[in-house]
């Protein structure tokens, strides 16, 4: 693997230096194959080589139930992953969020929902943290709307999460099942 990587980097350097050395003459003949080769070499090294690595199985990387899968599709469709991550990193910032994520955890995740930004908290180990009702209330509207709702399970003052009151009952149940399956 490392031999291949070093060879690829060498090949890239040669093309790159060749391109610079060749200056501006006979450009099309150099530019098109050179540019194409450079991107393919980098693709092989950074996408294909890691694909060849074995991924050890983990307890978290198990198939979803049918209902949880439907919930996962809703999670993807509604763009929950724009604001919630599902990755715990081995650094101080993420300490206390639960077990550090392993590659095997994502064996059945397609498309991946690792996320890039935490407007809301990380959801890697959300399952079992709250009751189902908490999630139902939270999805309906995350904030208390009336004085009676204050202190109700799942109503969080100051949250900026969008309300998902438009989801049908089945969709909400599936989404809750999925969220509870994240352990």
């Amino acid at each position: 693997m490392y031999t291949a990587l070093i060879l690829f980097i060498l090949a890239g350097s040669i093309i790159c230096l060749g391109g610079i050395y060749y200056k501006r003459s006979i450009v099309l003949g150099i530019l098109v194959p050179g540019a194409m080769l450079l991107i393919i070499i980098a693709f092989l090294s950074t996408a294909v080589l890691p694909y060849m690595e074995k991924i050890p199985a983990t307890d978290k990387g198990v198939p979803y139930s049918e209902r949880a899968l439907l919930g996962r599709q809703i999670y993807v469709r509604e763009g929950c992953w724009y604001c919630h991550t599902q990755q715990v990193r081995p650094i101080r910032t993420d300490a206390g969020l639960g077990n550090v994520s392993q590659p095997g955890d994502y064996q059945y995740d397609y498309p991946h929902v690792l996320g890039t930004e935490r407007t809301g908290p990380d959801l890697s180990h959300l399952g079992g943290k709250y009751e189902d009702d908490w999630h139902r209330n939270h999805l309906m509207n995350p904030r208390p709307k009336t004085p009676e709702e204050e202190g109700m399970a799942g109503k969080v003052k100051g949250s900026v999460m969008p309300p998902f009151s438009y989801l049908s009952r089945e969709e909400t149940e599936a989404l809750v099942t999925y969220l509870q399956s994240l352990r």
Binding site: F43, P50, D105, Q107, D109, H112
Partner: peptide
Amino acid sequence: GRGPVPGVNDAMLNWW
């Protein structure tokens, strides 16, 4: 949930 590549490789491809 099960795609042509595992989720971790999917994330790599996505960010590639």
